[in-house]
């Protein structure tokens, strides 16, 4: 599918375009829409955002590259970003991050072979009193330990399996 002409996004795109004084200001919200549609900010998404905003695709790509929340490569179904900044590290976040990578058998920034999970560390997420914590597909999961995390991984695997069955 595409984002241009896609009824799923039409109202949202119009709302963003109406918010700002210039079309260019809508580049960030539109990149999120492209990422939602394609799972990452791919060349097709860049081209479509550029077309909507009358920008050159290179200009849009430079914005996508500057910010860490736009992914320029495909990610797993669950994108796990563990905060390992100083306050979280004082509460064991480095050890938690290392354990999680071991548990899922992935390298930093890597994705599991079943394309379910991508794990990477990120800078401060403004949840320092609830460490260790992570962000899963832009939603916060806080006060983690190994047991709680194992439970969540199992739950997410189950949800993904159910969704796949539902589609089948």
């Amino acid at each position: 599918m595409a984002i241009i002409g896609n009824p799923k996004y039409e109202a949202r795109i119009d709302r963003h375009l109406a918010k700002y004084e210039t079309k260019r200001s809508a580049v960030m919200p539109l990149l999120y829409i492209a990422q939602e549609e394609y799972g990452w900010v791919n060349p097709e998404g860049i081209r479509e955002v550029a077309e909507i905003l009358n920008l050159d695709p290179t200009q849009v790509k430079s914005i996508a590259g500057f910010y860490t929340m736009y992914s320029e490569k495909p990610k797993g179904k669950y994108w796990l970003q563990v905060c390992t900044d100083l306050p979280c590290a004082l509460q064991g976040a480095d050890e938690f991050h290392a354990w999680l990578k071991d548990e899922l058998d992935v390298e930093e920034g890597g994705t599991t072979t079943d394309d379910m999970f991508t794990v990477e560390h990120v800078m401060c997420l403004a949840a320092c009193d609830k460490a260790p914590m992570l962000q899963c597909n832009f939603h916060y999961v806080e006060n983690l330990d190994q047991d709680k995390m194992r439970g969540l991984l199992a739950k997410w695997r189950q949800e993904a399996a159910q969704a796949a069955n539902g589609r089948g």
Binding site: K19, S25, M28, P29, Y32, F66, Y67, T68, M69, Y70
Partner: peptide, 8 residues
């Protein structure tokens, strides 16, 4: 209006 940044 609200506007979301993207990690910077």
């Amino acid at each position: 209006y609200t506007h979301l940044g993207a990690g910077a």
